[in-house]
């Protein structure tokens, strides 16, 4: 564990709490992509199958359980509790275009051709692109509530902090995880446009609005 990874994980936790706070206080999941949230459930379920056979640490165990549980809970809130506040006509990204290629990539690029490893690789590739339906939705509506942008910013910070973590690990432990690194860099890159608007508008007290 190093500071970058710890702060990254904390940013990830923060993003989930921000999202829960947004849904509970506005009693609405307006502006949140159900598809992206569903993809995160799939990401956690496929990545953490090692819960059953690979012990890392108590920290790792508790976080995994939390990510699985909280993502399922968010899905429940969106699907049942606040269902009428979700507008499927805005959430139109075709996730088949993400699932198919990620699965094929996982079959080709994995560390071992066995079920748990292919699922792990699949989850890494899928996480990298799972934000697409959310960003697509943002693009369609052209604006977002401030709290939704804070959620996305925390998610982006989490991904960004994993990059110095890998650099640090390379120099201190000599380990490189090429699958995680390449997918992680792609994933972080997807937030660049968003970050630009977030820093130049939302953090200056303006509304999050995309240029027409």
């Amino acid at each position: 564990m190093n500071l970058f990874r710890l702060l990254g994980d904390l940013a990830h936790l923060a993003s989930i709490f921000i999202l829960l706070h947004k849904i509970q206080t506005t009693r609405s999941c307006r502006g949140i992509s159900f598809k992206t949230q569903a993809l995160y459930v799939l990401v956690f379920l496929t990545r953490y199958v090692d819960l059953f056979f690979h012990w890392v640490s108590l920290y790792n165990f508790v976080m995994k359980i939390f990510f699985i549980a909280s993502s399922c809970y968010i899905l429940y809130l969106m699907k049942y509790r606040f269902r009428p506040t979700h507008d499927p006509s805005l959430d139109t990204f075709k996730i088949e275009y993400l699932l198919g290629p990620c699965f094929v990539l996982a079959l080709i690029f994995n560390y071992h051709f066995e079920l748990a490893e292919v699922l792990w690789a699949f989850s890494i590739y899928l996480e990298a692109v799972a934000i697409f339906p959310q960003l697509f939705m943002l693009q369609r509506t052209g604006e977002a509530e401030a709290i939704t942008t804070h959620y996305l910013a925390a998610l982006g910070v989490y991904r960004a902090l994993y990059i110095p973590n890998w650099i640090y690990r390379y120099f201190t432990e000599g380990v490189v995880d090429p699958i995680a690194v390449v997918a992680g860099i792609v994933q972080t890159g997807l937030y660049l446009d968003f970050f630009y608007v977030y820093f130049t508008k939302v953090l200056q007290g303006q509304k999050f609005e995309l240029p027409a």
Binding site: K64, H112, A116
Partner: peptide
Amino acid sequence: KDSSRSHDEL
């Protein structure tokens, strides 16, 4: 197994 050793990140 070596590869699972590296899966210590979340």
